Amino acid sequence: MRKAAVRLLWRALAVLSVVLAVLGTVLPVMPTVPFLIMAAWAGGKGWPALETWLLEHAHFGPHIRDWRARGAVPRRAKWLATVMMMGSATMMQFTPLPLYVRIGVPAVMAAVAVWLWRRPEP
């Protein structure tokens, strides 16, 4: 009984990740591939067929396999993420958010950008 419940939770996380990835295909602020990587990871724990499907997917499979093998991120994705973060940080400066948010969030984005650019490329 407990094993079935744990498998169901892994599947729920995998489905939620796929749903967020699908949203990422239409919303410019949501990433797609990171959620698919998480879906493949969760699927590997509770839904092997979903994991296999994601790993063999013609478009997203190579990105997931590169991440698993070497933690690699394509240069195009690095540029896109960096430009999107810079755009978000710039737009945030023109909002009535508290100063600590307008400084803190871009600082976190800058740290993420540094981490991202330190990742190997496929």
Rank of each mutant, 00 (worst) to 15 (best):
R11W: 08
L13Q: 06
E121I: 07
P31V: 00
V33R: 01
L97I: 03
V83M: 11
T95V: 11
A12D: 08
A81H: 06
T25W: 13
G87R: 10
V19F: 08
A5S: 09
R75A: 13
M91I: 11
P34T: 07
P34I: 07
R68T: 04
A14S: 06
H59E: 08
P31C: 06
R119M: 10
I64R: 01
T25Y: 11
V33T: 13
F94I: 06
M86C: 13
R102D: 04
M109V: 04
T25H: 11
K45H: 15
F35T: 03
L23C: 09
M91T: 12
V15N: 03
R75E: 08
G46H: 04
M109H: 11
V26D: 06
P74G: 09
F60R: 01
E56G: 12
M86T: 05
L54K: 01
G24S: 10
M84L: 15
K45Y: 11
W79A: 12
K78P: 07
A69P: 00
L80E: 11
V108S: 07
W53R: 08
M38Q: 10
R70A: 14
R118Y: 08
L54F: 03
W41V: 04
V26C: 04
V15I: 15
V73W: 01
Q93P: 04
L80M: 13
A39I: 03
P48M: 07
K3Y: 12
P98F: 00
M92F: 11
M109R: 04
A5P: 00
A111S: 13
P62E: 07
S88A: 15
M30R: 03
M91K: 00
A12R: 06
G71C: 10
M92R: 09
M109S: 08
L99T: 11
R65H: 10
I37R: 02
A5R: 12
M84N: 06
L54A: 03
A69R: 15
H63V: 00
P62L: 06
W41Q: 06
A4E: 13
Q93R: 12
V73T: 01
R118F: 05
V112S: 10
D66T: 05
W10C: 04
V19D: 08
V15G: 04
L80S: 12
L55A: 09
I37H: 02
H59L: 13
R11V: 08
M85F: 09
T32I: 05
M38I: 13
W67G: 01
A14H: 02
A5H: 06
V83H: 09
K78G: 09
W115N: 09
L55P: 00
M38H: 07
G24Y: 03
S88V: 07
G71R: 10
M1L: 12
T52K: 15
P122E: 02
M91E: 06
L20R: 02
L27H: 11
E56S: 13
I64A: 03
L36I: 11
K78I: 08
W47R: 04
V112I: 15
K45M: 13
I103K: 07
L116N: 01
T32N: 09
W10R: 07
A49Y: 01
H63W: 00
G24R: 03
V105C: 05
M30V: 15
F94A: 14
W117I: 11
P96S: 14
G43R: 00
V6F: 10
P31R: 05
T95P: 09
L23W: 02
L20N: 02
R65L: 11
E51P: 01
V105F: 02
I64G: 01
P48R: 14
W79I: 14
T90E: 07
M84V: 12
